[in-house]
Amino acid sequence: MFRKRRILYVSWMSLAVIMLLLTGCSSKDDGKTEGLALIKRTNPEPMDIIHGEDEEDEKGLITKVKEMVSDEDEIYDVIVVKNGKKILVAYKVKHLQRFHMKKIDKNVTKKLEDKYPKYKFIISSDYKIFLESVRLDELLKEKDVPEKKAKKKFKEIVELHKE
């Protein structure tokens, strides 16, 4: 009697483990990058919230900023958001380099401030800042997004960085 219960228990547990593995391995791709932003490289385009008369120059500037930060060996994904004279740079660091975060932040900040002294840089390796920047990018890709709404979201991200 005891042996039958044990066999039944083991078979039910095996079935439960198999079901968990099957449901855990399934994936749903709905086209949004924010869910996999921590694991996967999203490589978003640099963005400028304000579209002024020097749009081409500004696009070139933020593209150069992104390339400069991406050239760092420890960094594997970068998002750059510009709002006037403020430029937010959020990035993800390779896993084994996470012990050197302060050094990486200091190095990136120094390079950017030396190259572009007219701008105020907000540098962050925080995943939450990166994710919110990706959400802002998706918001800006929508048609007819008011500049006021985009600026408000940018300000919220900066406030989140200060916390």
Rank of each mutant, 00 (worst) to 15 (best):
S125A: 10
M13T: 14
E56R: 10
D71S: 12
K151S: 09
Y119A: 01
E147V: 11
Y91E: 11
V145E: 01
K120Q: 13
E142W: 02
K152P: 09
I39W: 08
D126G: 00
K118A: 05
P117F: 10
K152G: 05
L139D: 06
L61G: 02
K110D: 13
V69P: 03
K66A: 07
Y116H: 08
M101K: 13
A37P: 05
E156C: 08
K155G: 02
S125M: 00
I123H: 02
D77P: 10
E142L: 09
L88H: 06
H51R: 12
V81L: 04
D57S: 05
D137R: 03
M47K: 13
K32Q: 07
D71L: 03
K59Y: 11
T33E: 00
I157G: 02
R98H: 14
I62K: 09
D57Y: 05
D29H: 15
K149A: 13
K92C: 13
E53F: 07
K82R: 14
I122E: 10
E56D: 14
T42D: 09
T63R: 03
P46D: 05
I129G: 00
R135F: 03
F121L: 04
M47C: 02
Y76W: 12
I129E: 00
V81M: 03
L21N: 09
E147N: 04
A150N: 08
I123E: 00
D30G: 11
E58D: 09
M13C: 13
K103W: 12
